[in-house]
Amino acid sequence: MPSAFSAGSVGNDLESRMSGLESAEDFLEFFGVDFDPQVVRVNRLHILQRFHDYLQRADATDHAALRACLARAYGDFVRSDALTERVFRVHQRAAGIATVPLSAIGRRRAP
Rank of each mutant, 00 (worst) to 15 (best):
M1Q: 00
P2M: 07
S3V: 11
A4E: 05
A4K: 04
A4Y: 09
A4L: 07
F5V: 00
S6D: 07
S6L: 07
G8R: 03
V10I: 12
G11T: 00
N12H: 13
D13T: 11
D13Q: 13
L14N: 00
E15Y: 11
E15V: 00
S16M: 02
S16I: 08
R17G: 09
R17F: 05
M18S: 01
G20I: 06
G20M: 07
L21K: 03
E22C: 12
S23R: 06
A24K: 07
E25S: 07
D26A: 02
E29I: 15
E29Y: 13
F31S: 07
F31H: 03
V33Q: 06
D34Y: 09
P37G: 08
Q38D: 15
V39S: 03
V40D: 01
V40K: 02
R41D: 11
R41Y: 15
V42T: 11
V42G: 00
V42A: 10
V42S: 07
N43I: 04
N43W: 02
R44M: 10
L45Y: 15
I47P: 02
Q49C: 05
Q49R: 14
Q49S: 09
R50N: 08
H52R: 12
D53K: 11
D53E: 12
D53C: 03
Y54A: 11
Y54M: 08
Q56S: 12
Q56P: 05
Q56D: 12
R57T: 13
R57P: 06
R57A: 13
R57W: 10
A58R: 12
A58D: 06
A60K: 09
T61W: 13
D62A: 07
H63C: 07
H63A: 14
H63F: 15
A64I: 12
A64F: 08
A64Q: 13
A68Y: 00
A68L: 13
C69E: 04
L70F: 12
L70A: 11
A71E: 14
R72W: 06
A73K: 03
A73C: 02
A73E: 03
Y74Q: 01
G75Q: 13
G75D: 01
G75M: 01
D76H: 09
D76A: 06
V78F: 07
R79C: 08
S80Q: 05
A82C: 06
T84M: 12
T84K: 14
E85Q: 15
E85D: 04
V87F: 02
V87K: 03
V87H: 06
V87S: 08
Q92T: 03
Q92M: 10
Q92I: 05
A94K: 09
A95H: 06
I97Y: 05
A98T: 13
T99D: 11
T99P: 03
P101A: 14
P101V: 02
L102Q: 13
S103T: 14
A104P: 02
A104T: 09
I105H: 01
I105M: 13
I105F: 08
R108V: 15
R109F: 04
A110C: 06
A110K: 15
P111S: 14
